[in-house]
Design a protein around this nucleic acid. Structure first.
Ligand code: ZN
Ligand code: ZN
Length: 261
DNA sequence: ATCATCGGACTATCAAATTG
DNA sequence: AATTTGATAGTCCGATGATA
């Protein structure tokens, strides 16, 4: 039972709701690629005792002035499927569109009904009563049953994670530029998600070797296809750090900080 | 067996292109 | 001006590997 939301067990593949994202994840969560929430000392940070450093980074501004070329008309009836308003067709990709199903007519599909519970922005830390226990638990890598998803009533349950002392009095994330070498957690042993231990380790894994053939990464593509990518535009992942054009590592987060030996 | 790391799927946003 | 398209920027799922 991955989701508390009983799918209409009738379709071969559950359409799957849609992943809801926070507008801005805190630096810790972002760096760890983990779920964050709107509350500032986000749950995760609180859980790991790093609430002090729970701050949101800065969103990069979208590039402007980039040309895009002719658009393909897609909306409208399924008539002229897609061809650049003028000029010759792109090449082939065009389309094998639906033909008789201009609108899938997705019946329900709320806007954010994900097994996650997002407290209201102005809500005083829920603290409990979380209706929808964790979403991460459903498959969080740890596979922990996760008795209590969020906000432990008893702090004792979560012993203040003993991360290395903060770099300074100010808990705000210092610009990577002036932040030389992050003190590698010497003995944080215990356990921690990514962020806390977020250290640019070097001997990581997943190298896909020189053969250049990935072992077969994920294979998930529920509704992402319709979301946007897969097609001619393969979204691509802008992160990784510098994006191709910018080249200059932004600031929000340096991604997993790795990539280079 | 459990935890940490991070590749990349998926989402949200928004400017350019197109249409009215 | 309004709408649509499509790419950028960002979040975070979940596979993969390291360790305990
Ligand atoms: Zn967070
Ligand atoms: Zn946080």
């Amino acid at each position: 039972m991955p989701y508390p939301y009983p799918p209409p067990q009738g379709l071969p593949a559950a359409p799957r709701p849609k992943r809801k994202q926070v507008k801005m994840a805190c630096t810790n969560c972002a760096g760890a690629c983990k779920r964050c929430d709107d509350s500032r000392p986000c749950e995760r940070c609180v859980k790991y005792g790093i609430a002090d450093t729970c701050v949101d980074g800065t969103r990069k501004e979208r590039k402007k002035g980039i040309k895009r070329g002719p658009y393909k008309r897609k909306s409208k009836f399924g008539s002229n499927e897609a061809f650049p308003t003028a000029s010759s067709a792109p090449t082939g990709e065009a389309s094998t569109e639906p033909t008789t199903t201009p609108a899938p007519t997705y019946p329900p599909m709320p806007e954010s009904y994900y097994p996650y519970y997002y407290p209201h922005p102005g809500y005083p830390t829920p603290g409990h009563e979380v209706p929808q226990p964790n979403g991460e638990a459903v498959a969080n890598g740890n596979g922990h049953p996760m008795p209590h998803p969020y906000y432990p009533l008893h702090p004792a349950v979560y012993p203040s994670y003993p991360p290395y002392s903060h770099p300074g009095p100010v808990a705000y994330a210092p610009p990577p530029a002036m932040m030389p070498p992050p003190p590698p957690p010497p003995d944080v042993n215990g356990k921690a998600d990514d962020t806390v231990t977020a250290a640019p380790k070097s001997k990581k894994k997943r190298k896909v070797g020189e053969d250049g053939a990935p072992k077969a990464k994920k294979a998930k593509a529920t509704n992402g296809e319709i979301a946007n990518g897969v097609g001619p535009t393969a979204v691509g992942s802008s992160h990784t750090n510098g994006t191709a054009v910018n080249g200059v590592n932004g600031a929000a987060d340096q991604r997993h900080a790795v990539s280079s030996a």
